[in-house]
Design a protein around this nucleic acid. Structure first.
Lengths: 217, 217
DNA sequence: GTCTATAGTCGGATAGAC
DNA sequence: GTCTATCCGACTATAGAC
């Protein structure tokens, strides 16, 4: 990501900003708090990023980089030859993607931070939304649609297939978005590997019910 | 929406605060903007609500009231006698609730405002989360769990049933939470009655796949 | 109950030394 | 590149007139 090593205050600022923007939102996060957490000077923010908004955009780019690094390969393997897959192969690919998606967005601590920024951008899109949509959401929606199209034998660009993709993503993403409600309802205090297994099992089961069987692990 | 325009600055402030807190978050919303939008004086906020935070809590209570008014009756009808329902009756009740839930959270303009506050409270719970969980989320999760328990013949308080409830809610809620991504992917600019029908059809179809058939409209 | 005026605080950005 | 010092605007809350 960063090439120069003299400017690692820059990277520390992005990490601190990811946490702080995620926790308090853009308006609620102060550059003073971000700089303090990064062990950097307040003036370093206008210096490196031009403005608080520039820092926010840098955070979005960082998130896109990390997500691409984590699940980009899994998608690439499936979508490069989506048209040539059999329905059962497509089912298997979907299950594999679901597992990786849950591990990343729900299981990984990083995912909690990413989800907060991404959800905030859904409600009030800024330039950061463009970055995130172009680099990760859009391509992955398309890849998932290609797989569903094979399974349901419908056009990948049909509204029905596109909407199914969102519904399927929603049943997994809720476990990150509704964290506080889930903790209270389940008596949990965040995810453990065992709890994540329970979530994964339920999501897989619902996914299998929708796309049909023939998709055992 | 307005009952009286004299002396009801309090209600106008709540309405304006719902919009403004929803759009910009607690930190990003200024009492100046809220007061201006309400046609009230800034000093009316400390006067009526004690503080900006008091106004925020009043907004949460307002949301709970409105949600309870809209779908409370639908839940009450089903959950009063959930134990006595047949699986097919429980399926039917679930479908009916899903329709109302989508109409409220996805279809209604108000729902967009409520969702923003609720999601923000998930990420950073305050007293407002307690209000919303106790008054609406908790009871409705329990009612949905009772229905699923009948259908799957599993204990309503089992982790599996509780998690299934979240997954099923997630596939509907995503259509409100991921609004910007959906608009971009579908080429939409918000929901129309026709688009809402498409969403409802997909959610019903996935729901039917999970809970089993016997639940035609 | 509603207003104006203002106190007191904190925010982002800049200038300029080193 | 990193720092201190500072400007200036915006914020919440209060005091007190009417």
């Amino acid at each position: 990501m960063q090439v120069s090593d003299k400017g690692d205050a820059r990277q520390r600022l992005i990490d601190a900003a990811l946490r702080t923007f995620g926790e308090h939102g853009f308006g609620g996060a102060s550059t003073r708090a971000i700089a303090r957490q990064a062990g950097a000077n307040i003036a370093a923010i206008p210096y490196y990023f031009g403005s608080k908004e520039g820092l926010y955009r840098a955070v979005a780019t960082h998130i896109a980089d990390r997500i691409t690094g984590r699940i980009g390969p899994v998608f690439a393997a499936a979508s490069d030859r989506a048209g040539a897959l059999s329905p059962d192969e497509a089912r298997e690919a979907l299950m594999r993607i679901a597992d990786h998606f849950i591990a990343m967005m729900v299981g990984a601590d990083e995912g909690a931070l990413w989800a907060r920024i991404i959800v905030r951008e859904q409600f009030d899109p800024t330039e950061a939304f463009d970055i995130l949509y172009e680099r990760v959401m859009g391509p992955y929606y398309a890849a998932l649609g290609d797989l569903l199209a094979v399974i349901f034998r419908e056009p990948a660009e049909s509204d029905r297939v596109k909407l199914r993709v969102f519904a399927l993503i929603g049943q997994a993403l809720i476990f990150r978005i509704a964290g506080a409600a889930i903790d209270r309802r389940m008596g949990w205090d965040g995810y453990t590997p065992e709890r994540l297994d329970q979530v994964r099992a339920v999501v897989r089961e619902h996914l299998a019910a929708v796309i049909g069987e023939g998709s055992a692990p």
